[in-house]
Design a protein around this nucleic acid. Structure first.
Lengths: 157, 157
DNA sequence: GAAATTAGCTTGCAATCAGCAAGTTATTTT
DNA sequence: AAAATAACTTGCTGATTGCAAGCTAATTTC
């Protein structure tokens, strides 16, 4: 039980309690590509049906997707991203970006993204909202909410 | 086997073949906080030791961490991020950001990040490298590498 | 309007994986 | 030489996955 304490203390860990599974990310990816129905998720991902229904359930329970019955066809169910779900987009982009950069084969990235406002091909970068500069790992200083800064050895001072 | 085809076709999926597990993300988080040794990972995460050794092995095999023996003390091993590993930082930041925004309790985020170059508290945003604008999900157009654009229904046209 | 089809699941089962405790090996330190 | 430390490995039990099959309710076809 004590380790849960530490597990909960970080927002990365909290997010992973909602999203900490390969299939959850992939379902999410498909949702961003516009997939909405059970069978489409299944066909696109090749996921086992019991696992899919379980994962969809937890995503709905966690407020990432909303489940709606089609009024025109009572069999059909649509799963759509909530605002909370849409806000996961930077995570999906970051995953895709890294795969493009480090795991692409000779044919280049399998999917190309364009940024409609400027018309250019999208290369996502993580920036500081305050100054607009690109964020590099070595430029970040950590401070625990209690007030004590976290040393470079990862423990408290 | 055929579903692997589709699984491989997307860089998100490719990344998740390297990183598709809760523990891998958490080990990574600790690595960014400066943790380097086996026992420190274990203590910080409360992960089972067999699982930890397996995960560290796959991270090393995938070139995300490098394993080095301490020349001064032959018992000690350090795991350090490679360049490929450091480049995973935007993913960790994106996970943390979402958790801060959607899963924080009344006490606010448990860890605060500061951007040293500007001195301000870091709020990471995903931007378009070309135009510098913030990236919103609805502003992105998808195009499969083959050349055929991907429709809003998530399939090919 | 009965039979077939479709959408979205649930159930059962073998195999894999996680978590726990204990043990192992190779160094240091005392 | 004995004790401690770092980094693992092994054995066991119980949970989770993937696969195939079956189920149920709504809709389409004949």
């Amino acid at each position: 039980m004590e380790k849960q304490e530490d597990f909960r203390a970080c927002s990365v860990a909290r997010t992973l309690r909602v999203l900490g599974d390969k299939w959850l990310f992939l379902i999410l990816r498909e949702a961003f590509f516009g997939v909405k129905n059970y069978d489409d998720f299944q066909a696109k991902l090749g996921i086992a049906t019991n696992v899919l229904s379980g994962r969809l359930k937890t995503l709905v329970e966690n407020g990432v997707l909303k489940r709606e019955q089609d009024p025109a066809d009572g069999r059909k169910v649509t799963y759509r991203l909530t605002e909370k779900g849409v806000d996961l987009y930077p995570i999906v982009l970051a995953l895709m970006r890294w795969g493009d950069r480090w795991l692409a084969d000779e044919s280049g990235p399998p999917l190309i993204l364009h940024h409609k406002p400027c018309g250019e091909r999208l290369e996502p970068v993580t920036c500081c909202k305050a100054c607009g500069g690109e964020v590099l790992a070595q430029d970040i200083r950590y401070e625990e909410a209690g007030g004590k800064p976290r040393g470079p050895d990862g423990r408290g001072t």
